[in-house]
Design a protein around this nucleic acid. Structure first.
Lengths: 206, 206
DNA sequence: TCCTTCTATGCAACTCGTTGCATAGGCAAG
DNA sequence: CTTGCCTATGCAACGAGTTGCATAGAAGGA
C-alpha cells in the first residue's frame, strides 16, 4: 500500500487522467517515486471499482479523449486513515553502495566513471529542485534550502505551487518536502565526493 | 537484478548459510536493504542451480545442519560484469513524504507523533552506525563521520571489519559506505526537525 | 511442564512492479 | 510521404517481494 496513497494525494492536489498522473510521476516526482503508466492505469481502475475515485470522460479536440479522475469521499477517508496509522521508517536500497563494496573484489578504479556519472545526475536534480523552489516558493524567508533531509513521496517540484484545498498548509508542506529533496541531493553530492576521493586514493596505492 | 549482487558481495566478504545471510540483511544492512529469509533461500537456490555459488553441507552439534554457500567463479564473473555496467541513479520511495503532503487535506497536527517516532528511529540508527564505526574503524583519521551521503546496499556496519580478500580496499570501501549511512541519518534527523517545526507552526496557526 | 526463543530450511499463495506489445489519431520534420 | 514523436489507454506475461504457514531439535525461563 503506497502508490494508491500517492495517487490520492496527487489527485487531491489536482484532478487528472492516468496519463497526466504518469507524467507527474515522471518529471519531478519520479526522481524518487517511479510509477509506470501501466501500473497507474491498473491501480486507478481498481481504485475506481472500489469507489475511492470518480471518473469523468473528457472529450478533447485534436487529441484522444481522456478520463479525468477525482477523489471520492471514500478515497478521502482511506487516505485519512492511512495518514493516521503508523508506518515503518523507510529502508533505502542503494545499488551503488553494493557496487562500492563489491568493488573490493574487482578493480575499484573501474567505478570512478560510474560514480562521476551519478554525481552529475544528482547535480542536475539539485539544480532542478532549486529552480522549482525559486519558482514556487520565492519567499523572502530563510534563503533557499538550508534545511536537511531525504525527500520523496508525492515529491517536491510538483506542477504549479498548489491548487489545493487547504492552501496555506498545502504550500508549506510541499515546501518542506522540497527542502528535504534539496538536502538529500546536497548530502548525496558530498558523499559521492567522499567516495571519489576514496576510490582515487585506492587507485593510487597500487 | 539487485539482491543477487548484494548476496554475492556479502558471500565474498564472508561465506555463510541462507540463515546467516538473512541475519546480516536484518541487523545493520537491513536498515536500508531488506530481504526476508524466504526470498534469500529462493534466490540462493536459483544462484546455485545457475552455478553462481557452491554449497557445502556443514553438520553442527546441538543445532540443525546448515548449507554454507561460497561464491563460484561464475558468480565472481557475474558480479564483475554487473559492477562494470552502468546503473540508473536510484530513486527513493519515502512514504513519510507522501503522508506529509497528504496531511494538507487532513489534520497536519495528527502527524506530529508519527514524525517524532520516525525521528527516534533514525536517532537509534545513527547511534548504531556511530558505534559500529568506533568499533570497526577506530582510525585516528578525521574523527567519526563528517562526510555525507546516503548509505545502503550491502550496508554499513557489517559483521566484523572485513575478512575480505583485498583487505585494505575492502575496509576502506566499507568505511566510506558507513560514512554515507551516518551522513544520511544526520541529514534525515535535521530534516525531520524542519518538518516538526513546520507542523507545529501550522498547528498553532489555526 | 509448558511456552517461548533460537537455529535452520522450505512451500504456497498472493500482491507489487516491470517489460513488451497493441491501438489510434494528430502533428512536425526530413 | 514516411518516419517518428506525443497524447491516451490498455492487455498479457513475467519477475520481484511479501505473508502465512510448516517442520524440528535444543535451550532457557515461568
Amino acid at each position: 500500500m503506497a502508490i494508491e496513497h500517492a495517487i490520492l494525494v496527487s489527485l487531491l492536489e489536482k484532478p487528472g487522467s492516468g496519463y497526466e498522473l504518469a507524467r507527474r510521476f515522471e518529471r519531478s516526482i519520479g526522481y524518487f517515486w517511479t510509477a509506470s503508466h501501466q501500473q497507474i492505469y491498473r491501480v486507478l481502475k481498481r481504485m475506481e471499482s472500489d469507489g475511492w475515485v470518480d471518473v469523468r470522460d473528457v472529450p478533447q479536440q485534436g487529441r484522444p479523449d481522456k478520463k479525468e479522475y477525482t477523489v471520492a469521499d471514500l478515497g478521502q477517508a482511506v487516505l485519512s486513515s492511512w495518514i493516521h496509522e503508523p508506518i515503518e521508517p523507510e529502508s533505502i536500497r542503494h545499488d551503488l553502495a553494493v557496487k562500492i563494496r563489491g568493488a573490493a573484489f574487482d578493480d575499484p578504479a573501474a567505478l570512478i566513471h560510474e560514480v562521476e556519472r551519478h554525481r552529475r545526475a544528482h547535480n542536475e536534480r539539485l539544480a532542478h529542485y532549486l529552480a522549482g523552489e525559486e519558482r514556487d516558493f520565492p519567499g523572502p524567508g530563510q534563503g533557499p534550502g538550508q534545511a536537511q533531509g531525504p525527500a520523496a513521496g508525492s515529491g517536491p517540484g510538483e506542477e504549479s505551487p498548489a491548487p489545493s484545498g487547504p492552501l496555506d498548509a498545502g504550500r508549506e508542506l510541499q515546501h518542506v518536502v522540497l527542502r528535504g529533496g534539496i538536502a538529500y541531493e546536497r548530502m548525496t553530492l558530498a558523499w559521492l565526493d567522499d567516495v571519489l576521493a576514496t576510490l582515487h586514493r585506492l587507485a593510487a596505492a597500487r
